[in-house]
């Protein structure tokens, strides 16, 4: 299997599906020049010149026109340069895109994908480093995908491109350049299927995005101490594969939820309460969360390091749980 970085994996999914489905249309700021800041859409203009457009700095118009075009036969994939700028299009996301199907009694599909570079990277501070999964999860009608590997990113993007509902596709900027093996044969990864990244008996760690890699690193370290983590990546937060998560907790009797969102009201809060509700009888200890500090992302490297959840924090939480 070839090993490629995540930005290339997403690019391949777009290319392959655009060749299959002529209704797929790409739009966003600077998506032709350089293929966007992370080069995800590079090369599409050469291969599909009529199916990619570079937009003005107009996030509300980008999302709004994507929704309108989706109602009328296109399958738009819009890049919002940084997820932080989705704030500029929240009416279009929350009141239009998410609600159109239900509000109109199921008359229409809304196949829009919003690609959302997220998380901390390169010290770009408070307005360019956020993780907003929980906001999107809170709006009925939005699916939320959070790939952690190139393989998952490609397979999930392919599913998204064949689906009928809006997808908030969270792309962690720090993961774009991380390589991983991707099958060279056709595959898709369905939404709502968690992946058990590592099996273990002692603690279930539900990790998403960049925390998957950190959880696996913590697992290696703890294994030497005789603590075995089971690392589960939900891959999509909506829909959520509760079966896989709950049966793991029933086995390990302990759970840690970890992601890079700020902790208060983060997706970890939803997952933790679902586990508390459904697995109460199986839990030997309270569910723990390891997430970002409840602060806007600070610029200085010494502070950013403290704000973002670390392997050390995971180790401490795990040791504490089995103590």
């Amino acid at each position: 299997m070839p090993s490629i970085p995540m930005n290339q994996a997403i690019r391949e999914a777009l290319h392959e599906e655009m060749a299959r489905d002529s209704s797929i249309f790409v739009l966003g700021e600077d998506v032709i020049a350089h293929g966007g800041p992370y080069a995800v859409t590079r090369g599409i203009a050469e291969q599909f010149p009529d199916r990619i457009r570079q937009t003005p700095i107009s996030e509300a118009a980008i999302v709004g026109t994507a929704v309108g075009a989706a109602l009328c036969g296109l399958r738009p994939v819009a890049e919002i340069m940084y997820v932080d700028f989705i704030t500029c299009a929240m009416d279009e996301v929350v009141n239009q895109m998410a609600k159109v199907r239900y509000m109109f009694g199921g008359q229409t599909d809304v196949p829009v994908i919003l690609r959302l570079p997220s998380g901390s990277a390169r010290l770009i501070a408070a307005q360019h480093s956020q993780s907003l999964e929980a906001w999107f999860m809170h709006v009925p009608g939005l699916q939320v995908a959070v790939p952690s590997t190139p393989r998952d990113a490609k397979g999930l993007m392919k599913s998204a491109l064949r689906g009928r509902d809006p997808v908030m596709f969270i792309e962690y900027k720090r993961l774009y350049s991380v390589k991983g093996e991707v099958p060279d044969t056709e595959y898709v990864i369905p939404f709502g299927q968690a992946d058990v990244k590592r099996q273990g008996e002692d603690i279930t760690v539900v990790a998403s995005g960049p925390m998957v890699g950190k959880a696996l690193e913590a697992a290696r370290i703890l294994s030497a101490e005789g603590i075995e983590l089971e690392v589960i990546d939900p891959r999509t937060l909506v829909p959520l594969d509760t079966d896989t998560i709950f049966s793991s907790v029933e086995k390990t009797n302990r759970a840690i939820i970890t992601d890079e969102e700020v902790r208060r009201g983060g997706s970890s809060a939803e997952l933790a309460s679902r586990i508390a509700e459904e697995c109460f009888d199986y839990l030997d200890a309270p569910v723990r969360r390891v997430a970002a500090a409840d602060v806007p992302m600070p610029f200085s490297p010494v502070l950013e390091k403290l704000a973002v959840p670390s392997v050390e924090k995971l180790l401490a939480a795990a040791r504490d749980l089995v103590a």
Partner: peptide, 16 residues
């Protein structure tokens, strides 16, 4: 430079 003597105590950086 991300230092505490900066205008925003290093919390803002160039863009802020």
């Amino acid at each position: 430079f991300g230092r505490v003597t900066g205008y925003c105590k290093g919390k803002g950086g160039s863009m802020h």
